[in-house]
Nucleic acid binder design. Structure first.
Length: 457
RNA sequence: GGCGCAUUAGUCUAGUUGGCCUAGGACGCCGCCCUCUCAAGGCGGAGAUCGCGGGUUCGAAUCCCGCAUGCGCUACCA
């Protein structure tokens, strides 16, 4: 079984394309087949080298590895269409000789007699001769589909400048690369009969075609920039995990059963099959993706999560790359936030108080106004000062005891302390946070806010 | 216009050969519980006459026909 992903490098990797890549990869890998990366850069004016690199990086990030491709080579190369132009030309000329194609120099849309062997003047393109009849195929996802050939025009194979069109290039490539299964977007359904005709003209059997439903925006329209982010790389920047992206992609148009939602790569590989792919277009739902990302974050083990968080902490200026002490602190803090973040990018804001000094957010100053908060701050400072070791369970014991003795509700007693230690009314759990901040810094922050509370009256 | 494909709650879907579906799960939404904040978690709730209209059948989300809507293709773009 040989499958390929064939992006055209005209820009970033689109999330829709990434999903197509995933389905191809899943089928190839789950069947022990071969996965090929082929670059469709026949549109020279729009294709760039940077885009090729970016697409490969995105695929690697998702964990979709390929056995053959432009960078790793392979027995069926080259894997870039611009390097295969002579192959296409030979194929077109072969068809010409067999009378299955003809030269035509007419402008598009113009009715012409070239088909009958009376080519017009000017630069000549090579057109495929579509014979009468019906072209049908059994789509692995959509089921049986058929077209009357009268609805298919004689399409161009080779442009008058000698370059191949998409139809010629894909078919020739898929034939010469021995591709057995083509999974692609449903927007290609109408292209399929042309390509099947080409396969037959070349004396080859068409591969298995599987057209997957398109991904659309929340309004049901094709996904575009105005729906939000469509570049896969943006999702990495936003703090999404590749595990979550893959899980979400997989479930957007496929299901394992009636209830399994969170799945890892292994489960996907063990269960993926074309016959459980849905036929309806799927709406891209950021909400669900984000929830799913949170689920995958919770399932990561601590050191792994810390490592993935590092670039975001560095980016926020909270630590420098590779700093051992900071990493240790981060690793200790991970259990406090793993259930509190849905995106990796949310961590810096939640953990900033561990890495730099803080002052209470101005919008929460009312928490320390009045007599009770002031007494809490004073009393907590006293009790914590003598605490040894400065560990969360002991801190909790001390502070709960304090609240009880003072006749205060835990909430009322702890919120002023939270504001003092973390600078915010929302934070990771207080006692554990205090332990990580450390005794000295904790006391310093409490004293400072105690003084502030006195000023506020 | 022609051709093709699709159509289960706001969203993703289960439903493979018609009866166990008084349509299951998940996101989101609402409420309660837990609780040091925020989350996470637990429990419960609202939300779908299975696009519409005809058939076939004792019985249809599941089969047939028509219609509507959406999307795709109809390029010397991919």
């Amino acid at each position: 079984m040989r499958l390929r992903f064939a992006p055209s490098p005209t820009g970033y990797l689109h999330i829709g394309s990434a999903r197509t890549a995933l389905y191809n990869w899943l089928l190839a890998r789950s069947a022990g087949g071969t996965f090929i990366l082929r670059i469709e850069d026949t549109d020279r004016s729009r294709s760039t080298e940077e885009a090729i690199l970016a697409i490969m990086e995105d695929l690697r990030w998702l964990g979709l590895d390929w056995d053959e491709g432009p960078d790793v080579g392979g027995p069926y190369g080259p894997y870039r269409q611009t390097e295969r132009m002579d192959i296409y030309r030979r194929a077109a000329e072969g068809l010409l000789e067999e009378g299955k194609a003809y030269r035509c120099g007419c402008r598009t849309g113009e009715k012409c007699r070239c088909r009958e062997g009376r080519p017009s003047e000017g630069p000549q393109a090579i057109r495929f001769r579509v014979e009468e009849g019906e072209t049908a195929f059994d789509d692995a996802i959509m089921g049986p589909i058929s077209f009357d050939n009268s609805s298919i025009e004689d399409f161009v194979l080779l442009r008058s400048d000698g370059t191949a069109t998409y139809h010629l290039a894909v078919v020739v490539d898929d034939v010469s690369m021995a591709v057995t299964h083509v999974i692609r977007g449903a927007d290609h359904i109408s292209n399929t009969p042309k390509q099947i005709l080409l396969y037959r003209a070349l004396g080859k059997e068409p591969p298995v075609f599987a057209h997957m439903p398109l991904t659309v925006g929340s309004d049901g329209k094709p996904l575009s920039k105005r729906h939000g982010d469509v570049a896969l790389s943006r999702y990495r920047e936003l703090g999404f995990l590749p595990e979550a992206m893959i899980n979400y992609f997989a479930l957007l148009g496929w299901s394992l059963d009636d209830s399994t939602t969170i799945m890892d790569r292994r489960t996907l590989l063990a269960n993926f099959s074309l016959d459980r792919v849905s036929r309806n277009p799927g709406n891209w739902d950021m909400n669900k993706l984000t929830w799913m990302n949170g689920q995958h974050i919770m399932r990561l083990d601590g050191d792994d999560l810390a490592a993935r968080l590092e670039p975001f902490m560095v980016g926020a200026g909270l630590m420098s790359s590779g700093d051992r002490d900071s990493m240790k602190l981060l690793e200790r803090a991970v259990p406090l936030i793993r259930e509190r973040i849905k995106l990796l990018s949310e961590a810096p804001a939640l953990l900033a108080f561990l890495f730099r000094e803080v002052s209470p957010e101005t919008s929460s100053l009312e928490l320390i106004k009045g007599e009770a908060p002031l007494r809490v701050l004073e009393e907590a400072e006293r009790r914590l000062a003598s605490l040894e070791p400065f560990a969360a369970p002991l801190i909790e014991e001390a502070l709960r005891g304090m609240a009880a003795e003072m006749g205060m509700k835990p909430r009322d007693a702890f919120q002023p302390l939270r504001l003092a230690v973390t600078g915010s009314r929302v934070s990771p759990p207080l006692f554990e946070s205090m332990e990580l901040v450390g005794k000295e810094r904790c006391l310093k922050r409490i004293r400072r806010v105690r003084d502030l509370a006195r000023e506020l009256g």
